[in-house]
Design a protein around this nucleic acid. Structure first.
Lengths: 204, 204
DNA sequence: TTTATATTGTGAATATTGTCACAATAAATT
DNA sequence: AATTTATTGTGACAATATTCACAATATAAA
């Protein structure tokens, strides 16, 4: 199993490389990416080597080649389809999030227990949880986003797992419990913020 | 400098412990927390030892004591004050986010270039960026949240840093560049989701 | 009271991750 | 063409993080 840090670094590189490409660059040196991302140049070269990206000695790397290899590592140029559960405060913001479209990430359906939410016009259809299994099967969904209140998050999670979901991005402030074969990423906004505040205090 | 993983684990423990406390427990064993969080029992004990939490041999740990020590590590029972820049899609969801209040995290002011946003009624005041320095000084703010579009994120960031902010939680899909003494946590929703999808595919 | 059992706390062993240093080499310069 | 220079690619090394194993010890049971 490849380390989570490595995978995250690849996504960080990608973000920087897309930016550099946008401002007109075609090639980069490991030191430049180091400056952009904060990782060391040697580590970056090792990472590139790991995904079989070859540079030219003294010539640097072609941005296109790296981006291609990173996309390849993540297994797709295809659009990835996910579902979203919970169209409250956070959920509806995620539903409207623009960057997903650029990134070939598509939320194909959302779910909410509130019938009013189901009638309301969002850019994606909102169903009751009853439809969840059907949709997951039809669209062959592998990953879901949970944005429901803390008290119902585990129940929703269990249901998604039962329907065959293998990856969950969880915004509820709860540590979800799942079987081993399911991957959960808990994004606790409070924890992230606490973490930042902690470091801010250290650096004063 | 203490590792970021260690700090994150502490916050994960806290989330689980609060939950366990809510369902009526007073004491816990390291193995129980292991089951809740997915970290190994030995690691948990080492972590507790590191923040000077003592258990009773064969008796487990008192939840209260652990929580107190974790709060203490993060340096506060006081309310932590932060600012928020950008009241668009993501920004306004963050402004409304309930969990911050429970967690003694308070967004004291928000900023947006759009005058319409400034007039609109949110539960927190929304100012133009012009007010930013003044507010940061008055409230002695150390950390800020950036939720502006990618193209303006670095500019906003530079301004916050200039005003003395030492910690930034960034939701814009950009790797922000900051001086060494400033801590940035980049939360890219797209990257988080990609990461989950990647693991979901692995686990199929 | 004695024995069995479960749990903490931690030093030692192991595994993982990242850095360093430099040979290989391509490009640029003289 | 020869020399200098800048960069990659990677093996050896260092640092860090995690697990293992078990002594210490408190509780429960017999």
């Amino acid at each position: 199993m490849s380390s989570t840090e490595f995978t995250k670094r690849l996504l960080t590189y990608r973000l920087s490389l897309l930016h550099l490409q946008e401002i007109g660059l075609n090639d980069v040196y490991s030191h430049l990416i180091a400056g952009e991302t904060g990782f060391s140049a040697a580590l970056i070269r090792k990472d590139f080597s790991r995904i079989n990206v070859k540079g030219k000695r003294r010539g640097g790397y072609e941005i296109d080649v790296i981006l291609q290899a990173i996309n390849n590592y993540f297994g797709d140029d295809k659009v990835s389809k996910v579902i979203l559960v919970g169209m409250g405060n956070i959920g509806s913001a995620i539903a409207r999030y623009k960057d997903f479209q650029n990134q070939k990430l598509r939320i194909v359906a959302a779910f909410d227990i509130d019938p009013a939410k189901q009638r309301k016009k969002f850019s994606i259809p909102v169903y009751s949880m009853g439809k969840c299994q059907e949709i997951i099967y039809c669209y062959e969904i592998e990953a879901g986003i949970i944005a429901v209140p803390a008290f119902s998050a585990q129940t929703v999670c269990d249901r998604l797992v039962y329907c065959g979901i293998k990856g969950i991005l969880n915004f509820a402030p709860v540590n979800l419990k799942v079987p081993e074969e399911v991957y959960v990423s808990n994004v606790s906004l409070s924890n992230e913020l606490r973490h930042v505040i902690y470091h801010a205090k250290q650096n004063k």
